[in-house]
Amino acid sequence: MVKIRTFDIANRLGIHARVAAKLVETANRFQADIFLEKDGVEVNGRSILGILTLFCPRGSRLTIRAEGADAEEAMEAFARLIAEKFGEA
């Protein structure tokens, strides 16, 4: 199963180290392969440095692709995390 969704990053500081860590933690909870894409650049969702080098300040559009049996659950988890602005302002 492949799930693809695009999100707007709305928290004030964008995807900084702590937020990237939360994305990696989330990716690690699922079997599915996770890929993050911004402006045509795609990185592995389990690589904190990959995510940081995507460079996503507030207002960035981030596309997440989940591939695998639990892709749907994984995508829901990401959607929640981003909707909650990663628990920040």
């Binding site: 180290a17 990237a20 860590a21 690589s47 904190i48 440095l49 990959g50």
Partner: peptide
């Protein structure tokens, strides 16, 4: 949490 981030970097495949 900062230490967690450093641990994650040490485990980062790209790195």
């Amino acid at each position: 949490y900062i230490i967690d981030i450093h641990i994650m970097i040490l485990r980062d495949r790209k790195f």
